[in-house]
Simulated assay, not measured.
Amino acid sequence: MHSNHLLLEEPIRMASILEPSKPSFFPAMTKIVGTLGPRSRSVDVISGCLKAGMSVARFDFSWGDGEYHQETLENLKNAVKNTKKLCAVMLDTVGAEMQVVNKTENAISLQQDDVVVLTPDEGQEASSQLLPINFAGLAKAVKTGDTIFVGQYLFTGSETTSVWLEVDKIEGVDVVCKIKNSATLAGALFTLHASQIHIDLPTLTDKDKENISTWGVRNKIDFLSLSYTRHAEDVREAREFLSKLGDLSQTQIFAKIENVEGLNHFDEILQEADGIILSRGNLGIDLPPEKVFLFQKAALYKCNMAGKPAVVTRVVDSMTDNLRPTRAEATDVANAVLDGSDAILLGAETLRGLYPVETISIVGKICAE
């Protein structure tokens, strides 16, 4: 006689949750890309990152010069020797990135409901009233009511360190904006992002070309992360440029999708690129927040079908300052892996975060589970 109640089939055995995490996991599943910077450029810390599971080191040329990154890379080579763990090198271009030029590096405090002017006159000094920017075409590209974000290291989502502006009026080449939240911008480099607006800057800038042909060639980079990829043509141009350099014929080009323009041309970009990086930080600004997960799922599915690696960014932001991720973040990493993500890219968490090694370790454990 069988019992009446239905036996529920468990997709995951509850008991397995209580088993201890595996101390060493097979490292070749979901890769971890770590960005090396001020907090993670010593041989010691890099060795810790490698042991914790980092298999690609990302060098972000949005800040720091070739010499700075070269020192970091020499340390990486030593760390690889010490730990006997291999690590690939990724050069991340600046691309069509609008930046606020803050020569004095003084902190700038902005008050809600005040007005601030964005001007292409880079000779001016940055202040609470005036932010000089590196793009002369902004006034032509935006209109009253448009949204512009300004923040450091691309908006961490913290509303006290990044500011949300609404275009009030255009005065010649200047853009007058209303400040929507009080914030303090600290540091040398702030990025500017205008939502869903075409920015007429080249995807591979002259500076990028110089960095690739000097630093990139000298170090035979494995990956080129092509920031602000918006069209398949961007990838083709980068590929032509690499093939002219001889030494970089083996370098793979990963197209970084960071705005709606890139999203609209996703299928063609996927055909041309060797892999895709979903830059959720920027996409989260260009798209309504509730749409980002749909893009992630659709894009990862397409990458999996095409057999090309897909990389997801901005997963454990809170670990920049904390030893543990939030539950939402930990779940998010797992879901990115279940969606078919081939690598997780850590930015601020390893670049300037307080716990680079712990971050890689925790993300690695989640991927292993």
Rank of each mutant, 00 (worst) to 15 (best):
H5C: 05
L6Q: 13
I12C: 11
M14S: 11
I17T: 13
L18E: 09
E19K: 15
S24L: 14
F26L: 15
M29R: 09
T30Y: 02
V33E: 08
G34K: 14
G37D: 13
P38G: 05
V45S: 11
A57D: 10
E67H: 06
E67W: 04
Q70E: 15
T83A: 03
L86D: 10
A88Q: 06
D92T: 03
D92E: 08
V94T: 07
V94R: 12
A96F: 08
E97A: 12
Q99D: 01
V101E: 02
A107N: 09
L110M: 05
D114N: 14
V116K: 00
P120Q: 04
S128K: 09
S128Y: 01
L131S: 03
F135M: 01
F135I: 02
Y153Q: 13
G157H: 08
G157P: 08
T160Y: 06
V163P: 01
E171H: 04
D174T: 00
V175G: 01
V176W: 07
V176T: 07
C177V: 00
L185P: 09
G187M: 12
T191Q: 13
T203I: 12
L204V: 15
D208S: 07
K209F: 03
I212G: 11
S213R: 10
I221E: 09
L224Q: 00
L224C: 04
T229S: 13
H231W: 03
R236G: 01
F241I: 07
S243D: 15
D247T: 12
D247H: 11
K256L: 05
K256V: 05
I257M: 10
E258M: 09
E261N: 11
F266M: 03
E268F: 11
E268H: 15
D274N: 15
S279V: 08
N282E: 13
D286C: 11
D286E: 14
L294R: 12
F295W: 01
A299Y: 04
L300P: 00
G307T: 08
V311A: 06
V311H: 05
N322M: 13
T326A: 04
T326F: 06
E329Y: 03
V333D: 12
G340E: 07
G340D: 09
L346R: 02
G347L: 04
L354A: 14
P356C: 09
I366G: 07
I366Y: 08
C367M: 03
E369I: 13
